[in-house]
Amino acid sequence: MAAEYPSAAALYEAAKVVRDAGFKRWDVHSPYPIHGMDEAMGLKKSWLSAVVLAGGISGLLTAATMEFGPSSFLYPLTVHGKPTNFFTVPAFFPIMFELTILFSAFAAFFAMFIMNGLPRLHHPIFNWERFSRATNDAFFLVIEARDPRFTEIEARNLLEKSGGQHITIIHED
């Protein structure tokens, strides 16, 4: 069930109402980020940062293994009179740095993909004609029917109470 709101401020207040009513599977859509919306929606800290940290650490360890393994243990080769033990680490830092970033970026990219449920070619919300303005000048709040608290009457009352307009039920097909 979807509703349209006249302004970002109205959407912000409506999000607080829906949050306090205890709904879980719902979302807001606006053409630009609204500061403070995370809190208004009751979103917790995303787990993306943990995935990125894991990616970064694995990049660092990969670089360290791939560099010190061959250069210090498997086939030590003296280059430029530099040592082959731990103290050759300045030469290895750039690779460690690059792989840390590369792996973090991959982790962030793919974790975002999974969190957003991508790749996904179509969503029922696009069946609603008004919704095409979500990237232009309109503000929407959508409560999904699979939310455990969802009943048609309650959702409609809530959206009406919070000042929603053009309240519509959107079907799958």
């Binding site: 302004s7 970002a8 401020a9 912000y12 207040e13 609204i34 500061h35 403070g36």
Partner: peptide
């Protein structure tokens, strides 16, 4: 946000 600024 505009509505929050009115509170301050």
């Amino acid at each position: 946000m505009s509505d929050r600024s009115q509170a301050l």
